[in-house]
Amino acid sequence: MRAPIGHFDTAVPAPDCLDELTRPVADAVRHWSGSVPADRIVWVDTDPQWADTAVFVEHYGRELLEQSANCVVVAGRRGGETTLAGCVVLSTTRVDVNGVVRRQLGVRKASFAAMDTAVGETGMEYGGITPIGLPAAWPVLVDSRLVDLPWVLVGSGRRRGKLLVPGKAFAELPGAVVLEGLGM
């Protein structure tokens, strides 16, 4: 199979390579439901040495810069309670943690979750966290610009490999809330 975007040597429908994914991501692909069929989610092999965005797009295709997304874990606090959420934005933007995220979660304070919390709670590798397979109870905040893209490159749960996902699939993830201005 040829990757729909980018220049990757290996591209495989995600349901055909579950061993390449972390358990939560593989489970999410295995139990996928929505208007986008699971086999339209494509796993591509990438070398972790090219992980830095500038180097990545030079190696795998400049067009990926405008079609890549980052998923970060945010912790919101209010009255001793902590709420964790996934936030997915274009890689050319940053998450509006103190504005959009704080208001959406209804918390007094929001910040990026500590690395050990993000990794421990998601079951994914740091630097490879993806919205596909996040804990079911979490809200998944999605920048509205992503859902209109034909394809979005996002983490696969591991540092090695990425997923190519039709943009509209992000709006159908469990707990998904599509927000204007999430990425600024």
Results as ranks from 00 to 15, higher is better:
G157N: 03
Q49R: 15
A171R: 00
F170L: 15
R102K: 15
V177C: 13
G76I: 04
C87Q: 02
N98W: 04
A38V: 06
E81H: 07
E81F: 04
V152L: 09
P4S: 13
H59M: 07
V36G: 09
R78C: 05
L90H: 11
R2A: 14
P48Q: 08
H7Y: 05
W50V: 08
A69W: 14
R108E: 10
G79T: 06
G86P: 06
L90T: 12
V154M: 06
G76L: 04
G79M: 10
A26L: 14
G61Y: 13
R78E: 11
G120V: 03
R103H: 13
Q67V: 11
P48D: 04
V74S: 05
S68K: 11
G86I: 09
V100C: 03
G127T: 10
V42W: 14
V12C: 06
T93S: 14
W32A: 11
A176V: 03
F8H: 11
A14C: 05
A38Q: 08
L18G: 14
R94V: 08
H59T: 09
V142H: 04
S156C: 12
R2C: 03
G128Y: 09
R78Q: 14
L18T: 08
G183P: 00
L65E: 13
S91W: 02
G76W: 01
R23Q: 14
R77L: 00
P174H: 05
L164K: 12
D39T: 12
T82I: 07
L149Y: 11
I5Y: 09
A75K: 01
R62M: 13
Y126L: 00
V42S: 07
V44C: 10
A28Y: 04
T93L: 01
R103N: 09
E58N: 12
V25M: 01
P24H: 10
G86C: 13
L21S: 05
E81L: 05
R94G: 09
F56E: 05
V36E: 12
G181A: 12
